[in-house]
Design a protein around this nucleic acid. Structure first.
Lengths: 102, 102
DNA sequence: AGCTTGGTTCGAAAAGATTAGAACCTTCAC
DNA sequence: GTGAAGGTTCTAATCTTTTCGAACCAAGCT
């Protein structure tokens, strides 16, 4: 089931409170930090939690994706996860940088 | 019971995720915006929600206070609420400004 | 074809957050 | 004093999130 596109919100529909909420969980924030350096195979994300069940990880990603923070596209057998950095920087200037710097 | 001091976390104990969580609720974010222009009587906060029960408002404040975002000191019959801006700016540079600007 | 890998979805249980009423405490005004 | 205004705490109900197993699917390999 890594073949079809998942839904991503348009950047203008992304709300500040949803973004803040998605970033307010340590596990999700960790994923965002990992992806900040460049796109990552989903399998490579959350390397710090190797024992995390797949359904749990999938759900964490879903929250990040639906909040508009992350893009998640099919990539062969798996998926590629990337930060929607440019879009977020335009919508909420300085926010992502200050969070990632903290 | 507006006479005694409430507990406030030391700024170095304040966590990023707690701050983000506290800001991720629209009602709480609204209070933060109101207080950003200067200290406010608690009674004056949440003027946009005049029908809000007092216990609910008290709880919203508690979350903001325990997250380290707001200071809440006795002031006569009521309480005075202020943003811990300088402290937060030192701990999480740029964060508050980018949130308030958004 | 068949197996393995990577990932989604559904469902249910457990944990946590929110909302609000009730009881209570202080301070101020009269 | 008495009363009203401003807030906290407790408790209970409700709602939302989180967590994870189970079932399933698609792609790639042999």
């Amino acid at each position: 089931m890594a073949t079809y596109e998942l839904e991503h919100p348009a950047i203008e529909d992304v709300t500040l409170t949803d973004v803040l909420f998605a970033l307010s969980d340590p596990a999700r924030l960790e994923i965002v930090r990992e992806v900040a350096d460049g796109p990552l195979d989903m399998a490579a994300c959350g390397a710090t939690n190797p024992d995390l069940p797949k359904s749990t990880k999938s759900h964490l990603m879903k929250v990040l994706r639906e909040a508009g923070i992350v893009r998640n596209v099919p990539n062969g057998r798996g998926r590629l996860v990337s930060l929607r950095k440019d879009e977020l920087d335009r919508r909420f200037p300085g926010l992502l940088d200050s969070v990632l710097r903290s």
